[in-house]
Design a protein around this nucleic acid. Structure first.
Length: 568
RNA sequence: GCGCUGUUAGCUCAAUUGGAUAGAGCAUCUGACUUCGGAUCAGAAGGUUAGAGGUUCAAGUCCUCUACGGCGCACCA
């Protein structure tokens, strides 16, 4: 399904290829920043002039004369130092909207080069509560998975759980001292954290206890039956906690595979890298050197023989290529791990792993003092508490606006609205900024927020209900008012925005688009009566526009992992 | 010290990847309603894009330097 923009783009590219064969492939068409100039513009003449030394305005005039516009477009105008401006007649917009209405993908194009993409995200640690530090990876990974799979890729979502760290020595020490009690499902994470804290304190203050903790870890790693049983118990209880959070967030995984799954492969992997001369021994440890990246090497085996984070990542990477046939692996983590991933990718390349590797990173979460965020007691804010707070704040506002609601209905709406606000607020800013956490910002309900967009959606559904129409109608489009024409042109952009968000790995482009769309809908709503429209044809046209706007808002929010509701 | 990354309105952020007069929200002020759901709309005000040079027809965007943040740099994950 081609958009207005791509129709023009194709024509201009064709013209450019004939007259300026050496010029780049474009894109050459973009929307005008200032609507007074027109709807679309191209600056191709200035680029062409630079290459050939010709006068840009002359090229612009030739382009305007020789390159035919699609049907129902105004004659192009040459402006400035070599821009050509284009304007679409409402009739062409109307026709394009009718076509969009019939497209089940709402203008989203399927990629011509579908890949199998592994999305590695969220990755919490066993025996610890999920905290705010996990929210961005979880939501960003989820949205990117949705976007890329909607564009036609096969996405495999993987939760690479931290289930094999050295923390288990201290945890086992305290847990076994306490007589290996069964964990209470309602507070198992809290119990595990307490055991870890006890074990940690003992080990830090007493070298003998530290040795005992190391012995516990060693026993676990050799697969001693009782320790393995304890460890599995920790994993089960932790998984219950994670799944409850993921259920509330609406996030799913295709594969939950922890670091422990690769444990047996690590010795052979390191030997292989040594044999291939990719790795070498340095100061008793096994390392991979690349001075283009840093003076320091990438460590894959400690001098005491133990393996590291990077070793496990290499094993996981190989498994994803070998067993899952991944063409691409996208890791979604905090930006502090950039160096780690450069090392990892460099090693994978030397190792001849045929896979595209990307590190999609995001800024650190900071408190209001711009220091990494901690709650009052010094531990990070728990994700469960954050979700509860979101729900409570939503509930308070709902109780004001909808005093008729109570019980389960109120609860369900509060949960949906609270979490929607949180998700939107987290994804709205560009991902590589550091992220200053405040409750107010994350749980705001006014302005550029999920409730604003959801409100637009709810109103669209309400009009259709009032008109007695169950689904989105499909009538001829008649455009008169500027508000409805502007809204129409915006709806036609949906596909290209989704493509940009997916290919740039930046869902925030979609947030901005949806906010704009909701705003245009609200303005349309003020300016254009629908049920009281002046003629039946106009009413049908506007109902179609209302339905389509609602559908696109719902689709777009869905790609951000935000569900809609029919009534606020 | 080396490296990564950032600095845009009082605050929080955009800016279609080098395009025309840098846009939103919040906060402030002024308007619109016995609403097709006001969680709305219209308007005002708010800027030397940290600073200085450079490249270019064109720079918030690219290059160099400076200032100020955040982060990472061998046996944690």
């Amino acid at each position: 399904m081609s958009s207005l923009r791509s129709e023009l783009e194709t024509r201009i590219q064709g013209w450019a290829k004939t007259h300026f064969p050496k010029i780049g492939p474009g894109p050459w068409v973009r929307p005008c920043a200032d609507p007074r100039h027109g709807h679309f513009q191209t600056h191709l003449p200035m680029v062409a002039a630079k290459q050939t030394g010709a006068n840009p305005r002359e090229i612009a005039l030739r382009l305007a004369q020789e390159c035919p516009t699609p049907p129902d477009w105004a004659n192009p105008e040459v402006a400035g130092s070599g821009f050509v401006n284009y304007r679409v007649h409402p009739a062409a917009v109307a026709k394009a909207v009718e076509t969009l209405r019939k497209d089940p993908a709402f203008g989203i194009l399927q990629t011509p080069k579908a890949e199998t993409i592994v999305m590695d995200f969220s990755s919490p640690n066993i025996a610890k509560a999920m905290h705010v530090g996990h929210i961005r990876s979880t939501l960003l990974g989820d949205s990117l998975s949705r976007l890329l799979s909607r564009c036609g890729h096969k996405v495999i979502r993987i939760n690479h759980l931290g289930d094999w760290g050295t923390q288990f020595g201290k945890l086992l020490l305290a847990y076994r001292q306490a007589g290996r009690p069964a964990l209470d499902p309602n507070r198992s994470i809290q119990q595990l954290e307490e055991f870890y804290k006890k074990g940690h304190e003992q080990a830090e203050s007493d070298p003998k206890k530290m040795d005992e903790a190391r012995a516990e870890l060693a026993a676990l790693q050799t697969g001693e039956t009782e320790r393995m049983k304890d460890w599995q118990h920790f994993c089960h209880r932790s998984a219950e906690h994670f799944h409850e959070i993921y259920r509330r967030l609406g996030v799913t995984f295709d594969l939950e595979k922890g670091e422990s799954a690769y444990h047996d492969e690590l010795p052979g992997l390191v030997e292989e890298l040594l044999r291939l001369k990719i790795a070498e021994i340095s100061q008793g440890a096994v390392v991979v050197h690349n001075t283009n990246i840093s003076e320091e090497p990438f460590l894959i085996r400690k001098s005491d023989g133990a393996f590291l984070y990077g070793t496990t990542d290499l094993a996981a990477l190989r498994s994803r290529v070998r067993d899952l046939h991944a063409n691409r692996i996208i890791y979604v983590t905090d930006g502090r791990q950039q160096l780690h991933f450069r090392w990892l990718f460099d090693t994978a390349q030397k190792w001849n792993q045929h896979v595209a590797l990307e590190h999609v990173w995001f800024g650190t979460i900071l408190g209001p003092d711009r220091k990494p965020l901690k709650s009052r007691d010094g531990t990070p804010i728990k994700l469960g508490d954050l979700l509860d707070e979101a729900k409570e704040r939503a509930k308070k506002i709902l109780q004001e606006k909808r005093p008729d609601l109570s019980g389960e209905v109120l609860n369900a709406k509060a949960e949906l609205l609270g979490i929607a606000s949180l998700k939107y607020a987290d994804q709205m800013p560009g991902r590589n900024l550091d992220y200053v956490f405040t409750w107010e910002k994350l749980l705001a309900f006014d302005g550029n927020t999920a409730p604003y967009i959801l409100n637009a959606y709810v109103r669209s559904r309400s009009i259709l209900r009032k008109a007695g129409i169950p689904a989105s109608p499909d009538h001829p489009i008649v455009l008169g008012e500027s508000a409805e024409e502007e809204l129409s042109r915006q709806l036609l952009r949906f596909g290209e925005v989704v493509d940009l968000a997916a290919s740039d790995r930046k869902p925030h482009h979609l947030c901005g688009y949806l906010f704009e769309t909701a705003g245009m809908f609200h303005r349309f709503f003020e300016a254009c009566p629908v049920l009281q429209a002046s003629s039946p044809a106009l009413q049908k046209s506007r109902l179609t526009l209302v339905g389509l706007t609602g559908d696109i808002l719902r689709e777009g929010l869905g790609l951000l992992g935000i569900p809609t509701l029919e009534e606020m």
